[in-house]
Amino acid sequence: MDERSEKPLLIFDSGIGGLTVLREARVLLPDRRFVYVADDAGFPYGDWDEPPLRERLVSLFGALIAAHDPIACVIACNTASTLALDALRTAYPAMTFVGTVPAIKPAAERTRSGLVSVLATPGTVKRQYTRDLIDQWATKCEVRLVGSVTLAALAERYMRHGFVDEAAVRAEIMPCFVEADGRRTDIVVLACTHYPFVVNRMRKMAPWPVDWLDTSEAIARRALAIVPRISEEAAIERHDDVAVFTSGIADPVTRRLLQGFGLTFAAGSVAAK
C-alpha cells in the first residue's frame, strides 16, 4: 500500500472556523483521514502583532508536522495564510501547504454593480497581500475592506451555544453596504472561515440582498487537486478523525460540536517550540 494513503490531511485554523473547510473536504476526499487543529491557545489572532504571530505559526507547525506526519496542511485561516504562508513553505520545504486568501478575483468577475466589500479580520484587511490581490484582480471595481474585530468570536459562540447577538452582527456588517451613484454593493467576500457559520444571520440583518462569497469549497477543491485519491482497493481501515486544540482543553459543549463534525477530541496541548 502507498504509505501516502495512510497519512492524514491536516486542516488548521485559529479556532473552529475551519470546520467549514473540513466539511467540504470530506465530501471531496471521503476516504482520507483528517486531523483538525484549532490554535485556541492563540485565538484571536487579531490581538497579535505580526512578527510574534508569524514566529508562533512557524514553530507550531513544526510540532504538528512532527506529531501527525500529514500528507499536506490546509491553512483554513485568512490571517495565518496571508501572514505566514511563505514563511511556512520556506521553513518546511518538503511539506505541501494550501493557503486561504480572500476571494477577490471571483468577486470582481461576478459583480454587476462594481461595488464589492471584503469582510475580514483587521489583520487580513491591513495586510499588503490583500491589497496586492485587489491591485491584481479588481482594478475595475471599487473594493471596500471592512475589518471586523468581534465577528469571528461571535461565530465561535454561536457554534458552541446556538445563540448570537443579531444587533452585534448587524453592526459588524453594516460598513460593507455602500450606495454610490445609484449603485449598491452586490457582493460581500467572507474573508474569514468563521463567518459562514453566521451567514444566515448576516442575510437577515442586511439592508439589501447581496451575494455572500464563501471560499470553503474552493479551498477543499485545491486540496483535492494536490492530495492523491485513495482507491477502493487501497482504502485503509477507517480511523476516527481527530481534533487537536493547542490549549489541550475543550469543554463539553465544544466536544459535542466536534462529535457533530465526526471528530474525536485528542487530549493534550501542542506547544510551539
Rank of each mutant, 00 (worst) to 15 (best):
76 A>S: 11
98 V>H: 03
41 A>Y: 00
155 A>L: 03
50 E>G: 02
142 E>T: 15
178 V>L: 13
192 C>L: 14
186 D>F: 05
57 L>R: 01
94 A>P: 02
244 V>T: 06
66 A>E: 14
196 P>W: 06
67 A>W: 00
264 T>N: 10
182 G>H: 11
162 G>T: 13
109 E>N: 08
120 A>L: 07
65 I>Y: 07
222 R>P: 01
81 S>K: 10
185 T>Q: 11
264 T>V: 15
135 D>T: 11
199 V>R: 09
254 T>E: 11
23 R>Q: 10
239 H>G: 11
17 G>Y: 00
160 R>V: 15
32 R>I: 11
96 T>M: 10
128 Q>I: 15
142 E>S: 12
161 H>M: 09
140 K>V: 04
235 A>I: 09
96 T>N: 12
206 A>G: 09
135 D>R: 15
22 L>I: 12
256 R>M: 07
196 P>G: 02
254 T>K: 05
64 L>N: 03
173 I>P: 02
92 Y>T: 12
171 A>S: 15
55 E>I: 07
161 H>S: 14
249 I>K: 07
111 T>W: 00
17 G>M: 07
92 Y>P: 04
21 V>K: 02
222 R>Y: 10
154 L>T: 07
157 R>W: 05
61 F>N: 14
19 L>P: 04
202 M>C: 11
211 D>P: 01
138 A>V: 06
235 A>R: 15
159 M>T: 08
253 V>D: 13
239 H>K: 11
182 G>I: 13
207 P>G: 10
43 F>Y: 09
52 P>S: 12
241 D>Q: 04
85 L>C: 12
64 L>F: 02
